[in-house]
């Protein structure tokens, strides 16, 4: 397989695409937001519960789109759960910088961990929006916005 292809479509990503984690509606969620990429039709709803200390106690999502967007959403919910909103904000920016090629997860300091598998997206400008859609949506949910669009 082509290097770029195997780097992008790693087993972890394919697994999260096939069996996304935290893939359900969160009833009575404190906040929710809808993310939509009109260009490709990717659509996700992200639900969050946030406690008084600003810790995200639960985060789930539903929706459909390509493997990159779905795996990104799935892994994001895993990582965001239990974190303070400021930590999530920092991760959101690091992730954003990585997929836009502004942060190299191998050499620059970062807390991205498993999210590094999305680094390959930086070589595929058309797919950057797929990777960041759920992060935008989570960010909006935390900030109390109901709808985001990547356009």
């Amino acid at each position: 397989m082509n290097d770029k292809m195997s780097q992008l479509y790693q087993q972890v990503l394919l697994d999260h695409n096939k069996t996304p984690r935290n893939y359900r509606e969160l009833e009575n969620a404190d906040q929710e937001s809808l993310g939509y990429n009109p260009l490709c039709g990717d659509k996700y709803k992200v639900f969050v519960n946030i406690d008084e200390q600003d810790i995200v106690t639960d985060v789930t999502f539903i929706g459909d789109g390509c493997a990159i967007s779905k795996a990104s959403a799935s892994m994001m919910t895993n990582i965001a759960k239990g974190k303070h909103v400021d930590e999530i904000d920092s991760l959101y920016h690091q992730f954003h910088d990585m997929v836009r090629g502004k942060l190299d997860p191998d050499t620059d300091p970062n807390d991205l961990g498993h999210l590094k598998i999305f680094a390959g997206v930086r070589d595929l400008p058309a797919r950057v929006k797929c990777a960041v859609l759920s992060w935008h949506t989570l960010n909006a949910a935390i900030k109390g916005k109901e709808k985001v669009s990547t356009e």
Binding site: K4, M5, Y9, D42, G65, C66, A126
Partner: peptide
């Protein structure tokens, strides 16, 4: 397989 993943894989080929 979502069309956008197909598109990327095809492009790389």
């Amino acid at each position: 397989i979502h069309p956008h993943d197909i598109g990327t894989i095809l492009d790389l080929e």
